[in-house]
Amino acid sequence: MGTYNFYCDESTHIENDGHPYMILSYISTPYHMLRMHNKNIREMKIEHFYRGEMKWSSISKSQYPFYNEIIDYFFSNDLKFRAIVIDKSQLNHEAFNQDHNLFYDKMYYQLLNKKIEPGNKYNIYVDIKDSYSYLKARSLKNYLERDYYNIRNLQVIRSYESELMQMTDVLMGAINYKLRGLNRVTAKNNIIEKIEKMCGKSLVKNTSPFEDKFNLFFIELSNGI
């Protein structure tokens, strides 16, 4: 038994935002390791004279050494990452008697399903996006608690409050960048190549459902999810 923290983020998740994919993801850590991870990442920021939040959008040639070390750090310890990818061209809310808010809850359920184990307890943190984030978090908590009774806490936080939330943004950003066929920034291309090399998988394909370190799931909505 143990307690785990999940730091969840989403990208291009708005229904009609013009982007082809919706991605939900998290990084998880055993609770007792959280302080160590925060300390180590902050020390890396100081060493590289990096100020502010880590963000995929911030990666540039000058910042590449720092982000390169961040990827090394992720793959060197007990942190785990999972993402689900939804092709928004498959969205058909009417057919499933739902709106996009209910669909959002269902997709978060898919993200966390089978990763929440009965013997453990969980603190789930979701990145705050807008004034509706608090309502969405409450709805999501109610939805998850229909099946899970070991969620201690589910709340929204701002990404600057959490080093691991920021790391989630970086890994998720790499997936979205490659899926959209973008390749204009060499430093970003190099980070993607490094992630793929270290996890031994392409960022545009499913991993094994049993993959624990870096897990990707491309959902087929036609299966009735």
Rank of each mutant, 00 (worst) to 15 (best):
S131N: 14
K88N: 11
L171D: 03
M107F: 10
I84F: 10
L144K: 04
E43I: 12
C199I: 02
I225C: 08
K197C: 02
T29Y: 04
F66A: 02
M22I: 02
M54S: 10
R51Q: 10
P65Q: 06
S25A: 15
F218R: 01
S202P: 01
N215D: 15
N215A: 06
Y134Q: 05
V126Y: 09
L221E: 12
G200H: 09
C8R: 07
I225E: 12
L24C: 02
P20M: 02
G200W: 03
I195V: 07
N120Q: 10
P20L: 01
P20D: 08
N215P: 09
M107T: 14
L144H: 03
K201A: 04
P30S: 07
E47V: 08
K88P: 14
E145I: 06
F214V: 00
N92L: 08
E196Y: 06
I116K: 07
N120L: 02
I116E: 05
N5G: 11
E161C: 03
M198Y: 07
S133L: 12
M1H: 13
L112D: 12
A83L: 04
D78I: 01
G181T: 13
N190Q: 12
S133C: 09
K129P: 05
M198A: 00
P118S: 11
E196L: 00
K197P: 00
T186A: 01
R138W: 02
E47A: 06
P118E: 13
V185P: 04
N150D: 09
I219A: 05
S131I: 00
L135V: 07
H100R: 00
E161R: 08
I23C: 08
L154K: 08
N97F: 14
N153T: 05
L34D: 14
L216T: 09
E43M: 05
N183T: 10
V170D: 02
S28W: 13
N153I: 00
R82V: 04
Y7W: 14
I191V: 14
N223S: 15
C8F: 07
I157W: 04
D9H: 09
Y64E: 15
N92G: 05
K129N: 15
L135D: 13
N150H: 11
L203W: 13
H100P: 00
S11H: 05
Y21E: 08
N123M: 06
G52M: 06
I86N: 11
P20Q: 05
